[in-house]
């Protein structure tokens, strides 16, 4: 019984990081209709920048702030310099669908090379902002650590902030309207292109947090966030790709399921496990867990 509870809590901590990645992907998907593979690279580069700051100042949170800022700038830059240009030139037909995705893959490769040139390929690590030793209850030490708790709290704070921005501010309304119905948004006076770039910036910043949090209990390398991208994407699909709430729920389900697989079945099956969870969810609810029986948009 206690092991189940521990597994659940660690799953929650893992899932909460997936949630950030998956929100980043959903934000971009619903405003731009692009699956942003470059998000892994953007988050990775942001994390390297956060790593530099955190290592030099020995203040993790300062590193996190820089990672957020770097992520936001990178996100805005990708939209402004790549997506805008692409959409101007490829307006319709298969090229318009495929070109942006290929561009994000290309960007991922590009960022990887840049990071490789600057920092090299060896593993780096960031000093965790809290102990990674499990909590001690009475005589027993459990695997759930203060760092896990801190991760959950940090993600929770970020999710609440995002909810406030999206639900309670004019910026949030502009972001949602521009994503759901760009033409109506434009007719309402919203500068939709600029709003979309802001959306990319928010996604990038959130991705930067995900990268820093993963790295706080793991190593950083030019490839270390690839798995996070895969799981973030699976979580987004479970959530229906359109809904931020859905993607968070999807990420928590996935994080918990994978931790159970890890603890009860074995390490080797975790990666496959992600896809099994995805397939099971899609078989039961083809439009994702948030779908209300019919397609949400035309």
């Amino acid at each position: 019984m206690q092991k189940i509870l521990e597994t659940f809590l660690i799953g929650l901590s893992t899932g909460s990081i997936y949630a950030l990645m998956s929100i980043a992907l959903v934000l971009v998907w619903r405003s731009t209709r692009v699956v942003n593979f470059a998000q892994a690279g953007q988050a990775m580069l942001s994390t390297y920048i956060g790593f530099e700051i955190a290592t030099r100042t020995e203040i993790f949170w300062l590193g996190l702030l820089f990672a957020i800022a770097a992520g936001a700038l990178l996100g805005a830059g990708v939209d402004y310099f790549f997506m805008r240009v692409l959409f101007k030139h490829a307006v319709s037909g298969p090229a318009a669908v495929v070109a942006p995705v290929i561009a994000t893959l290309g960007l991922l490769g590009l960022i990887r090379s840049i990071v490789g040139l600057i920092w090299g390929g060896e593993f780096k690590s960031i000093k965790a902002p809290a102990s990674t030793d499990g909590f001690t209850i009475g005589e027993k030490t459990i695997p759930f650590s203060p760092l896990n708790l801190l991760i959950i709290v940090t993600v929770f704070v970020i999710l609440i902030s995002l909810a406030i921005i999206f639900q309670r501010t004019n910026l949030g309304l502009s972001l949602r309207a521009s994503a759901y119905a760009p033409e109506i948004a434009q007719l309402a006076g919203i500068k939709t292109a600029r709003t979309r770039t802001i959306g990319w910036a928010i996604a990038g910043g959130v991705g930067g947090v995900a990268g820093m949090l993963v790295t706080s209990s793991n190593f950083l390398s030019p490839y270390s966030l690839d798995l996070l991208l895969v799981f973030g994407f699976i979580a987004a699909v479970i959530g229906g790709l359109e809904s931020m709430v859905g993607s968070v729920v999807g990420a928590l389900i996935l994080g918990i399921a994978l931790t159970f697989i890890l603890n009860y079945v074995g390490t080797s099956l975790v990666f496959i496990g992600g896809f099994v969870v995805l397939i099971v969810v899609l078989l039961v609810k083809p439009d994702g867990i948030m779908a209300k029986g019919r397609a949400r948009r035309a």
């Binding site: 309304l173 949602r176 309207a177 109506i184």
Partner: peptide
């Protein structure tokens, strides 16, 4: 000409957002 995902109030607020 309305945004189905938004509430009635949000659809209205949209008109005055600028």
């Amino acid at each position: 000409s309305v945004i189905p995902e938004l509430t009635v109030r949000e659809n209205l607020e949209l008109g005055a957002i600028w």
